[in-house]
């Protein structure tokens, strides 16, 4: 008894040699099997020869960029995956280095905006209840400490002194008055340079700009940044600075 599925298998090259031989003999002897064999061969041949080959160039052209995208994503994932600890470490190190650099290299840099914000942290230095010039001079000298500045009691009147610390720096703020009105002198310790101010054209080492919206001139002396601030012209502020400087 012949299994007709074996005829398909024979046509498809799926039978061994001995099976083929046996089947061949059976097919030759039986017209019905022979008809089946030829019908299978014909159907297979028609399909193979007439099947349309689709034009796939455009579809393939659209497919390739997707493969490249996947490859790119894989590269990134691979890089990040393999080096995630190194990347995190590098990032953390960069943060630490940046912080240390800021603390060391940038620590001595004084900006007028920093001075304005730091001066709000200062507290008044209690003033003695006396009008004796010598006692007032001693009080002022004591409050000023080692800040490099000269006060000329005859020229200006001390209205108040504020002192304290801002961003780990000692600060003194003197509220003064002369014949042109009120002005302020601020001294900030631990300074290496002053930022954001431009040189005063006629002022030698003096710098000029604004502090808290008011005109100011500034200079560096013995690790202190000193600012003279007042609502007056720069030449007037420069004259105060010149008389305040320690010679």
């Amino acid at each position: 008894m012949i299994d007709r599925l074996d005829i398909h298998a024979w046509v498809d090259g799926e039978l061994g040699e001995s099976e083929q031989r046996a089947l061949s003999q059976a097919v030759q002897a039986d017209p019905a099997l022979r008809a089946e064999f030829h019908a299978i061969v014909l159907t297979k041949r028609i399909l193979k020869s007439k099947a349309e080959v689709p034009d796939c160039r455009e579809a393939w052209r659209r497919c390739r960029p997707r493969l490249r995208e996947i490859e790119r994503d894989r590269k990134i994932e691979h890089f990040v995956g393999r080096r995630s600890w190194a990347l995190c470490g590098a990032f953390a190190l960069a943060l630490v280095v940046g912080h240390v650099a800021n603390r060391t290299l940038g620590s001595g840099l004084i900006r007028p905006s920093d001075v304005a914000s730091m001066s709000s942290m200062l507290v008044p230095v209690p003033q003695p209840q006396t009008s004796e010039p010598e006692k007032l001079r001693q009080w002022a000298a004591s409050a000023i400490g080692d800040a490099p500045m000269n006060l000329q009691p005859g020229v200006c009147q001390v209205r108040g002194i504020f002192a304290g610390y801002g961003k780990d720096r000692r600060m003194i703020k003197l509220l003064l008055r002369d014949n042109l009105g009120d002005f302020t002198i601020i001294a900030v310790s631990g300074a290496s340079s002053i930022d954001k101010l431009r040189p005063l054209p006629s002022g030698g080492e003096l710098l000029s700009g604004t502090l808290d919206g008011k005109p100011c001139v500034a200079w560096m002396d013995s690790g202190y940044a000193l600012f003279v601030v007042g609502n007056r012209d720069y030449d007037s502020l420069a004259r105060i600075a010149a008389s305040t400087k320690v010679r």
Binding site: A35, I46, K50, A51
Partner: peptide, 26 residues
């Protein structure tokens, strides 16, 4: 269920199908 490919146990005439177009085969 096995269904014979050949009809009526007769050998097919190959030339009869050769006129079919690819589209018709598909």
């Amino acid at each position: 269920v096995y269904e014979p490919v050949a009809e009526q146990d007769q050998e097919p005439d190959a030339q009869l199908f050769d006129g079919l177009l690819s589209q018709e085969v598909e």
